[in-house]
Write a protein that binds this DNA or RNA. Structure first.
Lengths: 115, 115
DNA sequence: GCGATGCGCAACCGGATAGTTGCACGTTCC
DNA sequence: GGAACGTGCAACTATCCGGTTGCGCATCGC
């Protein structure tokens, strides 16, 4: 398990797992989709299009914030949340490294068979 | 929340969430890394490089299998697991759509400011 | 000032999950 | 045949997670 994968250190893997886990929920994925439009939205706004309580949405937003996927800025009496695409881009790059490693393995196998 | 994001239907979102959740664990991420080399490995092999029990590894492999990330094939007395890169590629594409939507929003904002 | 709005905090609940241990069964190999 | 190996199944525990409710506080608008 400590074999060098497409991942860096174990700490890096832990970080990736945290972001994956944050995205591993339907409601949170919907929040990300709602925020991917670029506009910052308040908790109430994000709750209005959902079927669960404002508190539930708040918890989900905190999870996303801890994973770095989302940033919060207080504006008057409302908390406006905004997407931070950096962790998402990092995750995408990570998945790309996994796929790449897989493709290279297939290519090596193919070359071995054809030799 | 039902606003059209980079996601398709709600069912599609549910599926994505399931795969994200499957990857949202350090141990499972390590398993994926170990299997990304292309070779199929038995449970004992995968356990030997880990600090947890074989049973724990087995459970994690079942989770990955349910998410479609991994396939299992019985070979004699051992179960050999192999990576299926399709869901990972799909997730990568999904993250790409999120980033793209974000970039387009930024571009529109920039155009608006400069007009 | 006062009602309405938006939020945070805390407690609580049910179900999922990560992990362990113990045991039984098929398979391989000598 | 018998020992060693690789798995599967079941039970059990502790913890985490998603969700709700209730309450209190700050802020905005009239």
């Amino acid at each position: 398990m400590s074999r060098a994968g497409p991942d860096g250190s174990a700490a890096r893997r832990r970080q990736h797992a945290a972001v994956f886990a944050a995205l591993g929920d339907e409601t949170r994925l919907a929040l990300v989709a709602a925020l991917s439009g670029g506009a910052a939205r308040s908790i109430s706004q994000l709750t209005s299009t959902s079927r669960v309580t404002r508190q539930a949405i708040t918890k989900h937003l905190r999870v996303l914030e801890c994973a770095g996927i989302v940033r919060c800025a207080r504006a008057g009496r409302e908390s406006r949340f905004e997407l931070d695409p950096a962790p998402i881009a990092e995750l995408r790059a990570y998945l790309g490294r996994v796929s790449e490693q897989w493709d290279q393995a297939l290519a090596r196998l193919k070359a071995l068979v054809e030799s």
